[in-house]
Amino acid sequence: MKEKTAIQELIKGIWDENPVLVQLLGLCPTLAVTSSAENGLAMGLAATFVLLCSSFLVSMFRKMIPGQVRIAAYIVIIATFVTIADRFLAAFVPDISKSLGPFIPLIIVNCMILGRQEAFASKNGIGRSLLDAMGMGLGFTITLLVLSSIREILGSGTLFGMRVMWESFAEWGVMTQAPGAFITLGCLIAGANWINARRKA
């Protein structure tokens, strides 16, 4: 495999290796918090922050962490940054922090973040790992934003709390609940598959 340029490293996470649509990682928060665009965005940014910081630390210490305990070490690093992100959200945007509930602490076991540490940050230098984390975080945030926008527009007729649908639009209540999350994500994944198949052809 030939070496990727810096810019390729950054943008691969947005589409080609999109963590949600292609790698199917980090699905739990993706489904759970995307009932409104605001929550989706907050979740995406929080996860990106944690991913960036942990990738930085893991790639910095990659030669010092012994192989046998590396997973435990990664998890402790991630958990520390998640605690910081959690306190930050609780202090500055208490409403969002409340509606995200246990899903902020659950970033710890988000397989996307642990996966990037194991697959990338532990093998590459700091600069490259930061680019990779940035790209993956962006891809995650954008996907969450798209998914939550669709669900909020159809489910409550609003976007970021502002009315976007016409007055007599009957909200599809189910979109804000569990089934809507699964079905919308299923359609998005299918859409990504379809576009990729067309691009290759």
């Binding site: 089934p179 699964f182 079905i183 299918a190 598959n193 198949a197």
Partner: peptide, 23 residues
């Protein structure tokens, strides 16, 4: 199953129907 829906996509749709049932 339609080609684009094979794999994870159809799994998600089925999970959605199950979630409807569990409601």
């Amino acid at each position: 199953v339609p080609k684009s829906f094979q794999g994870a996509a159809i799994t998600m749709i089925i999970a959605g129907s199950l979630a409807l049932a569990f409601m």
